[in-house]
Design a protein around this nucleic acid. Sequence first.
DNA 1: GAGCAGGTTTCCT
DNA 2: AGGAAACCTGCT
Length: 362
Amino acid sequence: MKSVVENTWTPFAPVAGLPPFTPAVLSEILDGGQAFRWHRTPQNKAGGGAPPNFASEIWLGQWSGCVVRLRPAADGALEFSASTALAPQVARELPRYLVTDRNWPALTDSLPWRSDAHLARGLAVFPGLRILRQPFGETLLGFLCSATKQIVQIKQMLALLAERHGRPIGRASGLQTPKNSPPAQGGPFPPADLHAPLHALPTWEALATIPEKELRACQLGFRARFISETARFIAAHPGWLDETEALPYPAAQARLRELPGVGEKIADCVLLFGAGRLEAFPVDTWILQAMAARYGLAGWKPAQVAQFGRAHFGPLAGLAQQFLFAHERRVAREAGSPAGAAGIPRPRTEQGPVVRFMPQKN
DNA sequence: GAGCAGGTTTCCT
DNA sequence: AGGAAACCTGCT
């Protein structure tokens, strides 16, 4: 027998009940602002024959006590692999996390894309985009960190919180890290030591006992006070989170907004991404800008845009929002980064029909 | 090196 | 009511 634990992962196996994904859409689902606990790692091509440049990535993700790897197979199927110790739990929880019991193609088709050319473009560019169902409490924590922060930084904060204050839940054995590890300061993930244990996020009960000063040390900035106060409130009110998750959407949103640091946008994000409330319509600066430019809502305030969104897109407004969001960011990315657009200071969205078929960036 | 970033709260007219 | 200012911090 081997004296060293080389690989603690189960073999990759398909996740049942999923339509095909392109790598780009998978990336948008896992790393497009819904969740902040996924990290892309390069495929281990030393493992065997084919050098599939298609499925050239593996995602490592966590939620609650689960650790899982996902990769898109060549045929578009999504395959997962879990650390062996957690395999049963992961196999049980992954379908819920990915919401495999909902008919997403049908839900998407029921959006008003036939009368909304811009939404139709979003659907065409991100076929198969779906909304995750993350643990409610963790989703709240993530979005309390999100105020005026970009995805990369939110991920850093959470990774730091987990590493310093979360329960160790497994080992990153067998992982590949992208060309060494980022500077140690860039955050603890991926861990420089491949055998370093991964950590779950701290529970709210744990957070309630951590001095705010230590939270600040996790790069939380002014969010530390909100998180600390929220933690103490939740710890002092057992069952409050569960009750809130179970309330109808408007009541749930109102309850969440009682928490310090939680306004309409964050409450909607928590309900959309952590409670399956597809009627929630988070309005951030991207959506605000997109709705102004493409729906003639210039000058509208976030609350007004949210109301418009729910009225215009219907009971699945949150799903529509995700398409608009993904699309808007993609337009900005492609307008800003490729060679040639150096003179443009900021990719303000433009009027009119943007985005026909974007030339593939071969 | 000033300015800004998937926001909320507070303090002002 | 409605609109700035402040809040932390790291990165461009």
